[in-house]
């Protein structure tokens, strides 16, 4: 059975989606998304501390996505069939009774699966104090990459969300995998 627009609507309604996007992530797009989310959150009945934290984590998640989609720029192997542009990504922000969920999904090269897995596994193995120490260590020692990432993104997301990072990979073919990151932020 084909998914209709109404099915999609119901799915998003059921998941309390505030905002969802699928397509190419650009700097201008992010500016608009941040603006929309800020004005949407003004009307929501959450504490200022919660709104601030959600916005903060959202910025980090979406810019992380933006910087890493860029990775495909480095090689001339961008997927070019009618099935879609592999630089395309998806993200959604949903609001539930006690928490927010930020989900991002993007294509990656299969060779990067192990590296991402070990990075997240390491972050998830740390308790709060260890995570704070790890953040400080990477901040003090690391250099910024040309794209502006400093290897701090995922650490910061875990630290600020006060939660373990959820993630999964789906192998598409020998050239591409799909990486999903799920960040849960408890309301304060």
């Amino acid at each position: 059975m084909a998914t209709t627009t109404f099915d999609l609507y119901n799915l998003m309604e059921r998941d309390n989606v505030l905002l969802a996007f699928k397509g190419t992530v650009t700097s201008d797009l992010l500016s608009s998304v941040f603006q929309i989310m800020e004005s949407k959150m003004v009307d929501l009945n959450d504490s200022p501390a919660t709104k601030k934290k959600v916005f903060n984590v959202l910025v980090e998640c979406l810019q992380n996505l933006y910087h890493h989609i860029d990775d495909f720029d480095n090689e001339n192997t961008i997927f070019d069939t009618s099935t879609g542009d592999k630089k395309s990504a998806i993200f959604s922000i949903s609001r539930h009774e006690d928490y927010y969920n930020i989900v991002t999904g993007n294509f990656i090269y299969p060779k990067n699966v192990d590296e991402i897995t070990s990075k997240i596994t390491h972050i998830n193995s740390l308790d709060r104090d260890q995570l704070k120490a790890y953040y400080k260590e990477v901040l003090g020692n690391g250099k910024l990459s040309e794209k502006g990432g400093g290897g701090l993104g995922l650490i910061d997301i875990a630290k600020k969300s006060r939660n373990k990072l959820g993630y999964s990979f789906k192998e598409i073919d020998k050239d591409y995998s799909f990486f999903t990151l799920i960040v849960k932020i408890l309301k304060k």
Partner: peptide
Amino acid sequence: LEYFNTSSSKCIL
């Protein structure tokens, strides 16, 4: 500062 991203955190350092 009200917010800063991790990319800025290195530059602020």
